[in-house]
């Protein structure tokens, strides 16, 4: 839909080699990722950027849904804090989700994600807020005492300093003990992105 504008847009894909060098993507993967970016960015507001509405539509296939986590992910991706993602921001953020990204980067990103108030630690109240939001978003209903007992157990396990909060070091130890907590930080799709968006070869700037 917005192919022509983006091709001539100064925000378009320039120097995929540099981005490939600074991320976990190959040059071909960057070019294929750009095809995905173009598709998502022109969904709602066709300005060559991914706005929150574009992002939610791509994630949920509807823009009528509100999600605490979709907002949180978007805000973390939005490094320039201008409410819209350029391709570079998009590629750099998704790079953390690459199967070959260092696990330390995944730990860091997931900590930031759950540190809702960006205080450098995760409070019990924040964990409760996220559990309640997850249950509401998935249409599940759990009694408050069950939610409290899940959180109690989590803090028993994670809060080894017993100060009622989970700091970065405790988070790191927790996920190293329970690697499944990082499962959503790896997108296998990023391995196959060149297959998913083969049209990148028509716009490729590099010889293979």
């Amino acid at each position: 839909c917005c192919e022509i504008e983006l091709q001539n847009n100064p925000r378009g894909l320039r120097e995929p080699q540099i981005l490939a060098r600074e991320t976990n993507f190959s040059v071909s993967e960057i070019e294929a990722l750009y095809e995905l970016f173009k598709k998502i960015s022109c969904a709602v507001i066709d300005d060559g950027l991914i706005n929150k509405e574009d992002f939610q539509l791509a994630l949920f296939k509807t823009n009528k849904r509100k999600s605490l986590f979709a907002d949180r992910v978007f805000d973390l991706f939005d490094i320039n804090h201008n409410g819209a993602l350029g391709f570079e921001e998009f590629a750099r953020a998704l790079s953390v989700f690459h199967p070959s990204a260092p696990v330390e980067d995944k730990i860091e990103f997931s900590f930031k994600l759950y540190d809702l108030k960006q205080q450098g630690y995760i409070e019990r109240q924040e964990v409760k807020q996220m559990v309640v939001a997850t249950l509401a978003e998935s249409g599940m209903d759990l009694a408050d005492e069950i939610v409290e007992s899940i959180i109690d157990k989590t803090f028993e396990d994670a809060d080894t300093k017993h100060d009622g909060r989970i700091d970065k070091e405790e988070w790191r130890n927790l996920v190293l003990r329970h690697p499944s907590l990082l499962k959503n930080m790896t997108l296998q799709y990023l391995m196959d992105i060149t297959t998913a968006f083969p049209s990148f070869v028509f716009h490729s700037q590099v010889d293979d």
Binding site: L59, M130, T134, N184
Partner: peptide, 25 residues
Amino acid sequence: RPSLMNAFELISTSQGLNLSTLFEK
């Protein structure tokens, strides 16, 4: 048994954190 589940395990199942849907056509 949800009472034995880690809160973050539950949170990580949230659809808003499942970015793989970005790649669905």
